[in-house]
Design a protein around this nucleic acid. Structure first.
Lengths: 232, 232
DNA sequence: GACTCGCATGTGACATGCTACTCGTCAAGC
DNA sequence: GCTTGACGAGTAGCATGTCACATGCGAGTC
């Protein structure tokens, strides 16, 4: 776990540090940790650590256990199903609205991000790739006209990321992910809401499918038909 | 603002106290306040107040301004539009799923809540009525099979409540609200997903419509066509 | 060996101390 | 009158002190 340095709020940095530590496996899901110890490892006081943990607790990533510590919650295929169910319900209609009202600025922004994704795919830079992927979706959602929706989806993506789950470079190459975004952009350019919704639905559903295949394989937890139904 | 007493977490109580204070008009939207002063008025230390404010900031109700104080954000018809847009996108499909898989327990729970709503409508107890209204929706959403969806909608309702907006007893009587829930319950009993979705959509859209009429009248802020479109 | 019980240890929750910063104000200078 | 800059009041952010409680462990009992 890297020591915290920088200019923005310490709490923000600690949030990022904890997220990274979970991804690195430095903080193990299911284990108990203490805010005291974490503060010491990060070389900051307990206050920003506590505030960061409270924020993460609200996001469902950790749980406080009074007088015992905080627990990093286990990632669970059901969580992923729920997140992607929500993303389908929210992003697909938003993409339709965005396509209906697409203007030059939106097309330019989406094109830029997709170009950036191609470039990162070429150099194999996973992290930057995901960054632009996120921005692509974010621009699209904002153009849908509901900022709160865009913020909600951002939160959902945070959750998925923190679950340590990505299909990039595992069940899917970065190039394939780019290819799934192209029909979305084309539909936006054509101001074709139906097409945009269809393309985005395909992309998100496909991502969910691959992610779940990975996760169920890793954790051995099977999905119930009720859960599978959510993604139809 | 009442002094905080009780057994649950102080922070939780402060959150509730701040919400109530905003509703009572004791904390005015747009004004700058300090966590120091608030702690003194509530007779608790600054820590739980700050944690409560951080939680409310995340919910978009207040905003911290570094070294200056925190501002209670103005309620805005656009916010309401966005919240109801999200509720339509989330609750309607969830109701369909719930109806498809309805069991005796769900029907019993919904029937209980609706009965309780009728009783509260008879005595004119707004607060308890809203409580059972919330539980009705909550049971329905949980039965949809996505707990995170239910939690998200809960958060949205918190926002609306905190905005100080309710149609109960103003543009709509409690009896009318009960009447709008009845077709939902009937569709669930009949295991009719389409019917449940239609009935819930009608109810939520109607609520949004009345709320917006009130708010635009009060604030004088008109809605753009783009915003109106979200609720179609 | 099984069982109780008190104490040490460690923790979250809360209280309080400290610091760098913002901004209003008010007097000095023009 | 108008600008300006020094200063003080007040704040969020962060550090640290305090407290009540949950847990584990080992001495004591039968």
């Amino acid at each position: 776990m890297r020591e915290v340095v920088g200019t923005s709020s310490l709490t923000d940095q600690v949030v990022a540090a904890i997220r990274a530590a979970v991804l690195d496996g430095e903080l193990v899901a299911g284990e108990l940790y203490s805010a005291y110890g974490l503060a010491e490892r990060l070389n900051v006081s307990r206050t920003p650590v506590r505030e960061a943990l409270l924020r993460l607790a609200e996001a469902g990533m950790v749980r406080f256990e009074r007088n015992r510590g905080f627990r990093v919650l286990k990632r669970d295929p059901r969580e992923v199903v729920e997140v992607f169910h929500l993303r389908l319900l929210l992003e697909v209609p938003a993409a339709g609205l965005a396509a209906r009202h697409a203007d030059a600025a939106l097309v330019a922004a989406l094109t830029d991000e997709l170009d950036a994704m191609r470039a990162m795919a070429a150099t194999g830079d996973d992290a930057r790739f995901m960054h632009h992927d996120r921005r692509f979706h974010h621009h699209l959602l904002l153009a849908g006209g509901n900022a709160r929706l865009a913020a909600t989806v951002d939160g959902l993506r945070d959750t998925t990321t923190t679950l340590g789950t990505s299909t990039a470079g595992r069940s899917r190459t970065l190039d394939e992910i780019v290819a799934e975004h192209e029909p979305v952009l084309r539909a936006v350019i054509a101001r074709d809401p139906e097409g945009a919704m269809r393309a985005l639905r395909t992309h998100i559903a496909h991502t969910a499918e691959l992610l779940l295949a990975q996760l169920t394989a890793e954790t051995g937890v099977p999905l119930t038909p009720r859960q599978t139904e959510l993604l139809d």
